[in-house]
């Protein structure tokens, strides 16, 4: 399907068969179907194969440093609350290098969509374990297999009371689309962790593996039940797919805290020098 978000004349840097192609298509189609205005959309990404995605989508974009997309996206949303802001990157980028920012973005609750391509491996640096790699995953560095407890983004997000926590598998495209749409429509921070295979460096977690080790949450199951969601977040083999948790009542967002009802883009804000003068005269 052609969308108004297709960017022409770009040289896509991914390997043939990469799961990122599916996610690129997914994001563009969701934006299109939600009638999103591209001049009001900003995608911020860090570094990694996944973080190249915004270079291939025709919107505003800011390609930042490894792990730093979330603080940048949070500030953009505060500077101009009228924009739709997406932070996108891989598991190493968002959960490893940017782990601290992930924790504190959850606490801040900015109204952004957080898309994480989770392939359980480092692609750009050629095959090392990522924070989400399963125990035993062998690489040139983890020669005896990964020993550390895999990072569980869902339970971490839930423990900090994130308002929208979800996981999808790009192998199940229509389901992924449905969940991503819901994430965009959610007011407040929304996490969409997307399972995706790396066809070059991860021979373990393949399309087939993700298919076999995941299951879809039942339709109509109550996604507002926090305790249930927390339980499901810890399930493994198979791991649940879908919206684990979506809070019913809206909580104030970061930009509401720092901007109140004032939604002007900050470039329109000018301080009145008379007020500065008055303040100065008090000293």
């Amino acid at each position: 399907m052609q969308t108004s978000f297709d960017r022409e004349n770009v040289d896509v840097a991914w390997c043939p068969g990469c799961g990122n192609f599916g996610i690129l298509k997914l994001v563009k189609e969701v934006l299109e179907e939600l009638h999103q205005e591209k001049r009001q959309t900003v995608i911020v990404s860090g570094i990694g194969q996944a973080a190249k995605t915004p270079y291939y989508i025709d919107t505003h974009m800011y390609g930042v440093l490894h792990g730093r997309a979330l603080p940048v996206a949070t500030a953009i949303k505060a500077a101009n609350p009228g924009l739709t802001v997406i932070a996108e990157g891989g598991d190493g980028d968002m959960y490893g290098e940017g782990g601290n920012h992930f924790l504190h973005t959850l606490r801040r609750n900015p109204d952004i969509v957080h898309i994480v391509h989770n392939n359980m491996v480092y692609g750009l640096t050629k095959g090392q374990a990522s924070p989400t790699s399963q125990r035993g995953f062998v690489s040139k560095v983890q020669v005896e297999g990964a020993k550390n407890e895999p990072f569980n983004p869902l339970s971490v997000a839930l423990s900090l009371k994130a308002g929208f926590v979800s996981r999808v598998n790009i192998g199940n495209y229509s389901h992924a689309k449905e969940v991503l749409k819901a994430a965009f429509l959610h007011k407040g921070y929304a996490l969409v962790d997307i399972f995706q295979p790396c066809v070059v460096f991860n021979q373990v977690n393949t399309y087939q593996w993700f298919k076999e080790n995941t299951y879809l949450l039942e339709e109509g199951c109550d996604s507002s039940n926090f305790e249930e969601a927390l339980k499901k977040a810890y399930e493994s083999m198979p791991m649940p797919l879908g919206i684990l948790y979506q809070r019913r009542e809206e909580l104030p967002t970061f930009e509401m805290h720092v901007r109140g009802e004032d939604h002007r883009p900050l470039h329109e804000v000018r301080h009145d020098h008379k007020k500065i003068q008055e303040l100065f005269e008090k000293y």
Binding site: Y62, H267, K275
Partner: peptide
């Protein structure tokens, strides 16, 4: 509040300056 200034205590200095850049990118004087 008197002057419309977004003030946030960041989790670390790494976030501080990255937020500053996000702010300027979107039109703030950060």
């Amino acid at each position: 509040k008197e002057f419309t200034i977004v003030v946030e205590q960041s989790e670390d200095e790494i976030a501080s300056l990255n937020m500053v850049l996000g702010g300027w990118y979107a039109g703030a004087r950060a």
